[in-house]
Design a protein around this nucleic acid. Structure first.
Lengths: 255, 255
DNA sequence: AAGTTTTGTCCGATATACTGGACACGCTGT
DNA sequence: ACAGCGTGTCCAGTATATCGGACAAAACTT
């Protein structure tokens, strides 16, 4: 906004700058460092941080470094709760878990990342790999592919940070291959990937669409990678049926 | 703070008030309503909301109602990463729900109130709907008693507002009795209360301790009040085991 | 132990952010 | 058509929040 380096600034603007800075740093920062990095007066930063700590939006650790506090966690919870498809999808996920005994997840995009909005564990001993609420690079997941269905190649390239195409094990996903996956997945509004984020897990996913038939979320099963083809198809059909029902209810709500 | 009703206020203070208001309302609110509810000038609220929308901290829906936006989700992701207690506790709660079919909660104190930080529904039809992030008087809950374990009687008296000792049904909890509950609960790092905040619910809780053996959070089951003693003890043992394991991992991480 | 940097707190001056009010517009019900 | 209400934008005045600088104490360096 202002090109003057040390112009007087509004508290709000400083506040937003502080939050964005902490988000970028991803670790607690001392107030001195923060003031230096933001080019802001130390006294102003003390003032704003103090107010945010009082509100629980930031917290100070034992070294008086500041980082995000509990309140932002509760705000985020409220945010998810406000998404209608999370409310509907959660009940459906629970129902599917009970019917099949499998671990069911409801997944969506948040800006340029993928996240598990809700999860219900199955009855099998097969362990749970992903936590809810954690942001994951989109190319690491089956659902991520489905969720990009409404976008053009260029939009996808724009959206995803280049580093997200490297899997945790060091392999790179080629953009061309990725786009092909995306298009294949979207033809049937479903997809299967095996051994992607970890080698023992297979992920089955079906897309829930909004009123414009664009993918808005996915509902998925996490099953062992060695699950046989018959069981796999049976589960996929269940997912598709649930996704279709949810899509319909969602479009209905939008009117 | 200020007792003047319409005194001029700092942007930051208005900003925090807006966020807290949205958290309490738990639904999108029009700017007009917000200004009225906060006793703030409309023009000021437009100003601040506009800045927050620009930053993605708030979002406007099709009716121009405002609610939390994507950015808070990213902030919360950063927070979770920095808080092993919440991160590990959530996983453990999900695991316990799966193992028992019961509704499991992770609870903590926020200043002088008690709150549910995470909840995972059980498979039984008995559905308890306490929302996460809602602040509740400490004496209304079983977990609240456990969480005060590290404090002296005087500190507890200082912390809890007198009105919090009145239950929703109008009964009063005597301070002496409450302290006795607290001390009893802490001997074993676990507690049971029945029919406290509502008559049909029993709450079983075990304390997760930090490296100084002070309670940092509780992990609990919400079960019907008529659950038999054998089942109750079985569940309590599971909670204790989980709490002990989490306490150990936390102390280990703190070094 | 002296020198250097960083940290937390305080304070007066002034640039300006916040406020109140005015205005135009789009509703809704009569 | 008209009145009544809510919404979004704009503006000028002034109460005050922000800033820079000063200070002591703490935390490192040499």
């Amino acid at each position: 906004m202002s090109n003057e380096p040390n112009a007087r600034m509004r508290g709000i603007d400083r506040a937003v700058a502080i939050l964005e800075f902490l988000k970028a740093r991803r670790r607690p920062v001392s107030i001195g460092d923060m003031a230096r990095a933001l080019g802001a007066p130390r006294s102003s930063v003390y003032e704003i941080v103090g107010r945010f700590v009082e509100a629980g939006i930031l917290e100070t650790d034992q070294d008086n470094s500041v980082y995000f506090g509990r309140s932002v966690y509760f705000y985020a919870d409220a945010y998810l709760e406000s998404q209608p498809l999370v409310r509907l999808g959660r009940d459906e996920a629970i129902r599917l878990s009970r019917a099949t005994g499998e671990t069911t997840q409801l997944c969506m995009l948040v800006a340029n990342k993928y996240t598990v909005a809700f999860m219900h564990p199955g009855s099998s001993l097969f362990r749970i790999s992903s936590e809810t609420g954690v942001l994951v690079p989109i190319p690491w997941t089956a659902s991520g592919r489905l969720l990009l269905g409404g976008m053009t190649d260029d939009e996808i390239k724009e959206l995803i940070p280049p580093e997200d195409f490297w899997l945790p094990d060091g392999r790179e996903i080629k953009f061309k291959d990725f786009i092909k996956d995306v298009r294949d997945a979207c033809k049937q509004y479903r997809t299967v990937t095996s051994g992607l984020s970890d080698p023992y897990t297979m992920c089955l996913a079906a897309a829930i669409r909004d009123q414009h038939a664009n993918p808005a979320a996915t509902i998925c099963f996490m099953v062992p990678a060695n699950t046989d083809a018959h069981r796999r198809d049976e589960l996929l059909n269940l997912l598709s049926a649930s996704a279709d029902a949810l899509s319909q209810r969602l479009s209905h709500l939008a009117n």
